[in-house]
Write a protein that binds this DNA or RNA. Sequence first.
RNA 1: GCCGAUUUAGCUUAGCUGGUGGAGCGUGGGACUGUUAAUCCCAAGGUCGAGGGUUCGAACCCCUCAAUCGGCGCCA
Length: 443
Amino acid sequence: MAKEIWIADVQSGAHDGDEIELKGWVKRTRGSNKIRFVVLRDSTATIQCVAKRDSIGDESFEELKGALIEASLEIRGIVNPDDRAPGGHELIVTSVRVVGGVRPDSPFPITESAMESADGGETEFLLDNRHLYLRTSRMTNMLKIRSSVFGAIHSYFRDLDFTEYQAPNFVAGAVEGGSTLFEVPYFGKKAYLTQSWQLYAEAAMPALERLYTIAPSFRAEKSRTRRHLTEFWHAEMEVAWASNSEIMNHGEGVVRHIAKRLLNERENELNEIGRDLDLLARYADNPYPRMRYDEAIETLQSMNVDVEWGQDLDYSKEKVLTQDFDVPHFLTHYPKVAKPFYHRVDPDDEKYVLCHDLLAPEGYGEIIGGGERTWSEEEILARIDEEGVPREPYQFYIDTRTYGGVPHGGFGLGVDRVCSWLSGAEHIREVIPFPRDSRRVTP
RNA sequence: GCCGAUUUAGCUUAGCUGGUGGAGCGUGGGACUGUUAAUCCCAAGGUCGAGGGUUCGAACCCCUCAAUCGGCGCCA
């Protein structure tokens, strides 16, 4: 039963001349009454299988003829290197069995025309049929790239002796001041889906000192943009005894590590979806400059962008700023008024907080937000009251300062955003299997 | 929450100033012994998003609603 031979190995020449059995799905089929060509796909590659009526007999030939697109097959034959075959190898079929057929009255709905109009992006039809769209080469490539991004994040932190740590997804209070929470009924009380691991990470910071996670976060924002999901994967880290600049070193480190990993592991997939590998090499090999908020405002004002000091930078400004960047840039030292209570006020100038955003180039915008945390009990209480946030849900958070508070910080990285930016996707929906936004929770 | 747009066959679409809807892909049948998104012939498949209005006559003009898409605010 177990599958022993993968199509990618056949295409690489490992089985030339052998009689083998392939298991896979029909990607495309064509032919005459005497000869049939079936392009078989598995998770690794595709191969053309050639069946002649004379050599396999009428019964097998008719069975193969009835195997529509996405029918699953077990197919035996002899591997033959042939320049006429896409990929350079083909299987001369000796016998075939349809494992799971596809009925003619309900053919596979993801057709060339459905793919063509999407033009690398997505349509309502493809989103409604996401469970089937996943099988196409574009989605398969995206999912493999995504897997490598997740793997790279884990290996970056684990190689530096960070401990992976999990926070609850049901919570009582907000992390982001302005963000909307998903409210869920909780045995007669109200609970919310978490927006971030951060507050719970700070509780574990005195225990583990260096910790990270990759987990979903939920934000009930009605955003309709190519960079937003209501459920997204959030890679977060927290470090004790660390400054804003040391936290940024890790942000730069992990993003460059991801780019490097993709170049090593996913060159084929990136090529197939049409991504320029030189861009990834540039993101992997060069340091990321750091720019203070004030500088960014001056730059924007010199470009005649209407922006005032004290505003948070919205996407229209990020876009202008990042269009000319050749690598990601950090923006640091935002005005206190633009950021929530947990950001530590700059002791050198109380107008600012010690924070950073990492803005990705190509007009992409923010992929990381982080910084130093307000760590003394006195300061955190003052900041909470100043912003009119209730103390009660945050008592556990305040306690982490009451007992041996230390300077610390961390960041959150939007994993889907990184996948989207590095793969050159048109929309963040393309890089996650079942995207959730304000209008879609199905399939 | 705001601004803009779209909705015609399973999919992708054409449809001019209003005169009872064309095609490609897919599916079915036929032809073809080396195709590369095979090709060629034939067929089935549409109350034109829903409801109302104007008109002798509406896919097309007007109104209401719905769904979807793009963008903004907010953010990862």
